[in-house]
Design a protein around this nucleic acid. Structure first.
Length: 591
RNA sequence: GGAGCUGUGGUGUAGCGGUUAACAUGCCGGCCUGUCAAGCCGGAGAUCGCGGGUUCAAUCCCCGUCAGCUCCGCCA
């Protein structure tokens, strides 16, 4: 028997047809003389009927059917009596009277329910992922992921991009995240690294004249996991020649607008707003601000510089700042405020100053440190009204920004301010090119060593390198970074200057990046690119709360796969072939 | 590396220093010809994550450990 129709598509128009359906048994209702079975495939569910009176033999065979058996049935599509129509399912007007059927495979009783809205330990879902993925909501996520990526390919193909594959076994380069290493059998003692991104190859493709490149690229970073971070993940990686920042931003805006329209039917307004990094940090305390709520951070250093509160004045004397957030109308209890203080302390704050705004003025243990006039100015600066609670952090600028940024997000959750249905895209631009690493006592590239400074900031590299801004940009959606890229350096002198600032000698630079620097000597077009984190983007597009929901076979927080039990020990002869001897911490099992 | 939360029949929960460990659902059997969360009757199913400690007595309290989740560090 060959499947002639999908289960989920049968409707009144099919009445009278003889069909063959194949799928899984969603459920069975045995009434003694008649058995109803819901047959499910990836398109949906249809009711098939085994009737004692019509076919006694088939009916008795059907008594053995159970959930999740794989079943093939053939029979006639019949209309249901009006009073037995099921309006809850699309196929509810019809049912199939079974003439014959085959059990293609029986099933043990599944450990999780194959249905939507299950409340089950994620452990079990991951261990039995193949059952979890049978659930309609997961099938939909798989399908939507396919569809979004298909639309990306369609769009970029239409724009003249070539999809090019780059190696997965490549070489380890310094900077960036920890590499996953793969030992070489043929060259003893040497290792490949799995790519953190195809960065260097896509730049080489620009030298190679590809001009417009993209790839749906798997990337690997051996770092700890988060709800929005897995050690292996998928990027839409792109690189273009003869472009500047605006070309890339508007291309991505159109692409994102296209896939939202095509895949979700949602119309996005472009261009997306653009915000300099500095402004994002000052107003939101984050380089990936969530714009679905306001709660902006306010500067109050000037207003508190002459107060008696030593925590404030002390921070200012050390060159720090005092900044605050107004939790509008929050009307927090003392307990809430204590919890929030604890939250900030966990993040490294020394404390959290607060003022409750009542109808009769401010309430706070800190009132005595301030003059009436200053309190009034403070209230006005913070736009305080009765019911508000004002919070202040005094610390070094970067730290204060960071803590307030986290507090802002936390408050939004606690106060239920996040407009979940909104899609607030934002470009954050003008990132600082470099930061200073006090441990290594050198500058480090914020993006990567090939990121170009802004033309007008090139001279700053000689005088105040930390003030130089990069031609780098991040795409932010609802408080998550969903993409980032830059215009690259394509001129040799500037690249050498960068390496010099990063503390590489010419020899070291050639040792690590010689192949790229050499390529750059053979006619390199100006170029730039971007990579979008597809798992995150798809997660947000589908309203999922974790990246794991849109990855078919994800890893757990400790990097293991509960389905295959990877990572796992290997046989000794495998290690021998690779010239590897294990040196495990004490008390570890012998492998 | 650090902090927090969670762990009880297959599944989801309740419980409590001494219980026959409760409920729902699922599963098995029986009855039942129009259900679609079918219904009714009966039954099986748990060494309460693991190890140690306190105690006359531990699923419950303490310590450790493992696993999962969230966050910090890390990661663009």
């Amino acid at each position: 028997m060959k499947k002639t129709h999908d289960c989920g598509i049968l409707k009144a128009a099919n009445i009278g047809e003889t069909v063959c359906l194949s799928g899984w048994i969603q459920g069975r209702r045995d009434h003694g003389g008649i058995i109803f079975v819901d047959l499910r495939d990836r398109t949906g569910i249809v009711q098939v009927v085994f009737d004692c009176e019509r076919n006694k033999e088939i009916f008795h065979l059907a008594e053995a059917l159970r959930s999740e058996y794989v079943l093939s049935v053939s029979g006639e599509v019949k209309p249901r009596d009006p009073e037995t129509v099921n309006p809850k399912i699309p196929t509810g007007e019809v049912e199939v009277f079974v003439r014959e059927f085959t059990i293609l495979n029986p099933s043990k009783t599944p450990p999780i329910y194959v249905e939507d809205d299950i409340d089950v330990d994620e452990n079990l879902r991951l261990r039995y992922r193949y059952l979890d993925l049978r659930r309609p909501e997961m099938q939909k996520k798989l399908f939507m992921r396919h569809k979004i990526i298909k639309k990306i390919r369609d769009y970029l193909d239409d724009q003249g991009f070539w999809e090019v594959e780059t190696p997965v076994l490549t070489r380890s380069t310094p900077e960036g995240a920890r590499d996953y290493l793969v030992p070489s059998r043929i060259r003893a003692g040497s290792f490949y690294a799995l790519p953190q991104s195809p960065q260097l190859f896509k730049q080489l493709l620009m030298v190679a004249g590809t001009e417009k490149y993209f790839q749906i690229a798997r990337c690997f970073r051996d770092e700890d996991l988060r709800a929005d971070r897995q050690p292996e993940f998928t990027q839409l990686d792109m690189e273009l020649s003869f472009v500047e920042t605006d070309d890339i931003l508007s291309l991505i805006e159109s692409l994102v607008q296209y896939i939202y329209h095509e895949a979700l039917g949602i119309e996005l307004t472009i261009p997306f707003p653009r915000m300099p990094y500095r402004e994002a940090m000052e107003r939101y305390g984050s380089d990936k601000p969530d714009l679905r709520f306001s709660l902006e951070i306010k500067e109050v250093s000037d207003l508190v510089s002459d107060c008696q509160f030593k925590v404030f004045t002390g921070a200012l004397k050390k060159g720090g700042v005092v900044r605050g957030i107004n939790a509008k109308g929050a009307a927090f209890s003392r307990k809430d405020v204590d919890d929030l203080t604890e939250f900030c302390i966990q993040l490294g704050a020394k404390g959290l100053a607060w003022f409750m705004v009542g109808t009769e003025g401010l309430k706070s243990p800190l009132l005595k440190f301030f003059t009436e006039e200053r309190l009034e100015q403070l209230s006005s600066q913070m736009e305080a009204e009765a019911g508000d609670v004002l919070f202040f952090v005094a610390d070094a600028q970067e730290k204060a920004e960071d803590i307030l940024g986290h507090l802002r997000n936390h408050l939004a959750g606690k106060m239920n301010l996040v407009k979940e249905e909104e899609n607030r895209f934002l470009w954050v631009v003008d990132f600082p090119l470099l930061s200073y690493d006090p441990e290594e006592k050198r500058y480090v590239a914020n993006h990567h060593p090939f990121t170009s400074p802004r033309d007008e900031d090139i001279n700053l590299l000689n005088t105040e390198p930390l003030k130089a801004r990069a031609k780098a940009y991040d795409l932010v959606l609802n408080g998550l970074e969903v993409g980032g890229g830059s215009i690259r350096i394509h001129r040799r002198e500037l690249q050498e200057k960068m390496f010099e600032l990063l503390g590489f000698t010419t020899e070291e630079a050639y040792e690590q990046f010689g192949f790229l620097l050499q390529a750059f000597e053979y006619g390199t077009p100006p170029h730039g690119g971007i990579a979008l984190g597809l798992d995150r983007l798809i997660m947000l597009m589908l309203g999922a709360s974790s990246i794991r929901e849109v990855i078919p076979f994800p890893k757990t927080a400790s990097g293991s796969c509960l389905l295959t039990d990877a990572p796992a020990p290997v046989a000794e002869n495998q290690l021998d072939e690779l010239f590897i001897r294990l040196q495990l911490p004490e008390d570890e099992e012998e492998i």
